[in-house]
Amino acid sequence: MPLVFTATQARFEDVCTVEDALPLLEFLKSSNTPEVDLSPCTWLHTALLQLLLTARPRMAASPVDPALTRWVAPLLADASRERGFDG
């Protein structure tokens, strides 16, 4: 199971696929202050990225993967800082 949930945190482990979209959505809906830990993630499916961009949870740990660090982290960092969408 690539996504590991605790009460307030979702941990993205290794390859996270579209199968994880529904559990992630449930998690994001259920928690008032959801947090995500992207550090172990190596592959983030677009559907998951889309959910993260919609919900803008706080990023407890940034990704380590270079591609995610370069292209995804800034987006989510902005999102959690600004809490506003400028798209």
Binding site: A21, H45, L53, W71
Partner: peptide, 30 residues
């Protein structure tokens, strides 16, 4: 999304919602 990191020559990438995003409660993750 995952197509883009496969481009070694990727210089800049902008990811955005093509229409205003639906609130989380109504969103269809698929």
């Amino acid at each position: 999304f995952n197509l883009f990191p496969q481009l070694p020559g990727l210089q800049a990438l902008r990811i955005f919602f093509r229409e205003p995003p639906v609130p989380l409660a109504e969103t269809d993750p698929f």
